[in-house]
């Protein structure tokens, strides 16, 4: 006859699986505290790099590969005409390159003669966007270059159409970029509006208004005549952002009565909807 053992009438509050899951939660919370609050730049950087690269290699890269492949297939019909156009552009690029090198050489000679130096020289470091803010609140994206490629904090980031943001945080192989569309930002971009070929007026980019989809900028000189459609570029004041980077064009001008300056609404040149390839500008 089997032996009957007396068991306690109380049942366990948590079963075995629940205990394991609670333990996993505690491990994750501890890990989160270590990487966020306790500090240790190496730990937080490796943690961020690990999750970002995992997500990029598991999800983003394969998905983009498939999407790009299907787009390439659908664009096959127009490949021939695009190839012809590109061949013509490449042929003229060689001429432009020669002219540019000659111009740079003459500029260097003139600067040496006049004992001046131009401070808007920069190097461009190409990068790919590997992670984007999925909920759209923080307006931060991650690029695949970091301190190992010479990236430093506050460097400007552009895409093919214009300025899009600045480097917020640098890790060894990745960097976080805060877009200009971020509503919570502690830095302002200094800009200039090209009134004519010889004249420009300076100001600062204040914020991005998501209701209208435009930047709001304050122009310090209220006497200038600013018209709709004028180009807005970076002024280079401050040294962080090179001068001459396209920001957008003037959409609306509002004179501030009883106040100094003019408020200008600027339509961004860059498309903040979707971009994959960007460049980080390193001022020399």
């Amino acid at each position: 006859m089997p032996k009957i053992t007396n068991r306690s009438n109380e049942t366990a509050r948590f079963n075995r699986t629940q205990k394991i899951l609670i333990f996993i939660c505690l491990i994750l919370i501890t890990f989160g505290f270590i990487t966020r609050i306790v500090g240790g730049n190496a730990a937080s950087k490796s943690g961020y790099d690990l999750f970002t690269m995992l997500r990029y290699s598991l999800i983003d890269q394969p998905t983009r590969t498939v999407v790009n492949f299907s787009e390439d297939i659908s664009n096959l019909w127009s490949v021939q005409s695009e190839n012809d156009e590109l061949r013509q552009e490449i042929a003229s690029q060689k001429l432009y390159k020669t002219e540019l090198e000659d111009t740079k050489r003459r500029l260097a000679e003139l600067e040496e003669l006049q004992k001046i130096s131009s401070n808007d020289q920069y190097d461009s470091i190409g990068a790919t966007v590997i992670a984007r803010d999925t909920q759209g609140w923080s307006n931060i994206m991650t690029i695949n270059v970091g301190s190992n490629s010479g990236i430093e904090k506050d460097m400007s980031v552009i895409n093919s159409k214009g300025l899009i943001g600045r480097v917020l945080e640098v890790h060894a192989n990745t960097s976080k970029v805060q877009l200009l569309t971020a509503e919570k930002t502690d830095s302002q971009v200094s800009i200039k509006i090209e009134l004519s070929k010889e004249k420009a007026t300076t100001g600062s980019l204040e914020k991005f208004d998501k209701t209208t989809g435009t930047f709001t900028a304050n122009i310090f000189d209220s006497t200038v005549e600013i018209k709709k459609g004028m180009s807005v570029v970076t002024s280079g004041i401050g040294g962080l952002t090179p001068s001459g980077i396209l920001v957008g064009e003037v959409k609306e001008v509002e004179k501030l009565y009883n106040a100094e300056g003019v408020e200008v609404r600027i339509k961004p040149a860059a498309d903040f909807n979707d971009f994959t390839y960007v460049s980080v500008l390193k001022v020399k």
């Binding site: 598991l58 999800i59 983003d60 999407v67 984007r132 999925t134 759209g136 307006n139 903040f272 909807n273």
Partner: peptide, 12 residues
């Protein structure tokens, strides 16, 4: 994550 890669959010 796959869907968000195919249809990214418009930051502007």
């Amino acid at each position: 994550g796959v869907i968000e890669t195919c249809f990214p959010i418009n930051f502007a």
